[in-house]
Design a protein around this nucleic acid. Structure first.
Lengths: 339, 339
DNA sequence: CTGTTAGCGCCTTCAG
DNA sequence: CTGAAGGCGCTAACAG
């Protein structure tokens, strides 16, 4: 592996000049610049990232903190991961994967103190998140996908759950539905303060209230079996129900089965709308589900971009805060309300 | 951030002694060892990874090359990624994510020349893979999840597709089936030499042949629509068919629909077995699918472990080669052959 | 068993 | 606009 010294020799300049040429930290005459880059080409030279990081105090490495949530990792997280990786690369950063649970703050501290990463992206944040506390305490740069309660003047990117609830209800109302139930994630998640569960719950209630419609909601553990059980109860107790919005992909097969067994056809007799879901699984159902798909790749991208901006910022920008809507994809599980 | 010098001072020893104590590269008297570690504790010292890497020629960083295959990333890849990350951490390595397509060899070369990573894990390899060629050319350490044609005396971990085909057919035969069809992935993938498609095709043919049963196979693009179309044709042309093995998760909803519309109930009239699939999606179907689930986390783990062993090997071990079976999970989509 | 010291490859003040 | 030289924090000879 050639080093900067080799390049300097070949170009007939000092090493520092090569460094400046590479980093653009200082004006260089066009002529020597050319010579230097030619020499780099010839030698197939690439700056050594470790040495650069050590000397320059910036490694151009960021880390993605990927904790497995209770329900396991899914397409949502996969979207974050890959788009964060892409975004990092586009900006000439490297992305590390730190698979730590939300409570492994000691391990996180260790990793940070290693000095490898310039900053981290936190995903799947809890409303109150120890990791975020730690990062604040260490004053270590970070960005968040999701939102905490205590925003601490920090930025974030998240899904606009309220808007999503609104879009869902609005869409069903336009199809003539007035009896709309929400099946949320598990009560445990809700009570643990899991952001999406909490915000969707409140968002849905607010929207239904604003339309002066009856509010009907259920929590449901994230399994088909529980989906079946919860949905059976729900329809038995509410035979007037014509539609349902569900933010619980894993429960959906059970829900469909319950509805079918009750004697309703989808979408002729009953409409089903999957919230904050991914196209992959929405298309796996029969019929394919109309859904409000989560902007996963955008979230991952923005999370990475916000962190990188923060790392490269000269002045202090105001903390970037962004809420993204879900995209409505009309597939086969929704239709006009039955008479 | 304290440095090694601080620790050395506080413990009253030379920096090198601290270094040796940390790395265990040289015997240290128990007493000074204690003093040094106490000093490290007191100062909350952690070795700087960049400096360590630069000086020691080993960064303890490995990279996972994660190309998105044609069909997009799914649970399989997610399993690789997370288990590789876990394994890396357990061995005190850091895992980088390099999202490069299989043909982006220039970018790969660049990243390697940066000197950040000690080695890479390649997944989703093609039977002939440019990345592997490059890695061989550069003599850069790597491990493979999957297999190339030209093994070059290199190790690998992969699924035992032949065994999987055998297990699937055997299981169905025991249920009394003799008319068994295979729905594979797309012909394009097969012809492009995509390992799983090729090996499953050959494995299935060999197994059916060994049982002296009729061989019936179809390729199918990875969408529900195509699954529907291919399956409609298949059953129309083969009304005696009683079962089907499918290595094409995305096509399955369409397949189920086709079978249902044909008038067969699953599993009473027709058995469906999903090959090399993930429990998550197998459980998403109605009924939940009996499947041979892919050992994703084991593959990811072994891929990482093989690389790390290679990096830390003193002597040259023989290249580790391992084929893993899929796990049979009997769920609700298989039953005795209809009369 | 321990200490001294020269790098690892680069960045970044300082002088010119 | 360019050069020289001191460090970044650690490892690994080389000496005791």
């Amino acid at each position: 592996m050639p080093t900067m010294i080799d390049v300097a020799k070949r170009a007939g300049v000092a090493v520092s000049t090569v460094s400046y040429a590479i980093n653009g930290t200082r004006p260089i005459s066009e002529e020597t610049r050319q010579r230097i880059f030619a020499a780099m080409e010839d030698l197939d030279y690439k700056p050594n990232a470790l040495a650069r990081g050590l000397a320059g105090k910036r490694s151009r490495i960021i880390a993605l903190l990927c904790a497995a949530p209770d329900r396991g990792l899914g397409f949502t997280e996969l979207g974050f991961i890959t788009s964060a990786a892409d975004t990092a690369r586009e900006n000439e950063y490297n992305l590390l994967l730190w698979s730590l649970d939300a409570n492994q703050t000691d391990e996180l501290r260790q990793l940070i103190q290693q000095g490898l990463a310039d900053g981290v992206i936190v995903m799947e944040v809890h409303l109150h998140d120890e990791r975020v506390d730690l990062l604040n305490e260490l004053e270590f740069p970070f960005s968040i996908i999701g939102r905490c309660d205590d925003l601490q003047n920090h930025g974030y990117v998240d899904i606009d759950f309220h808007q999503t609830a609104y879009d869902a209800v609005r869409y069903l109302i336009e199809l003539g539905h007035t009896q709309i139930a929400l099946i949320n994630q598990s009560q445990r998640q809700f009570e643990a303060g899991y952001g999406p569960a909490v915000r969707m719950q409140h968002g849905f209630e607010a929207v239904m209230h604003s339309y002066d419609l009856p509010i009907l909601t259920r929590f449901c553990p994230v399994t088909p079996q529980e989906g079946y059980r919860v949905c059976c109860e729900l329809v038995a107790e509410n035979p007037d129900l014509t539609s349902m919005v569900v933010m619980n992909e894993r429960a959906i097969p059970g829900i469909i089965q319950a509805i079918t067994e009750y004697g309703w056809r989808i979408p002729e007799d009953f409409s089903l709308l999957s919230l904050v879901s991914s196209p992959n699984v929405a298309q796996m159902s029969i019929p394919p589900l109309t859904s409000l798909d989560s902007p996963n790749t955008e979230l991952g991208r923005l999370g990475a971009e916000q962190l990188i901006q923060q790392l490269e910022a000269v002045a202090d920008h105001p903390p970037p805060r962004k809420l993204l809507p879900c995209y409505l994809n009309v597939r086969g599980s929704t239709g006009p309300a039955r008479a």
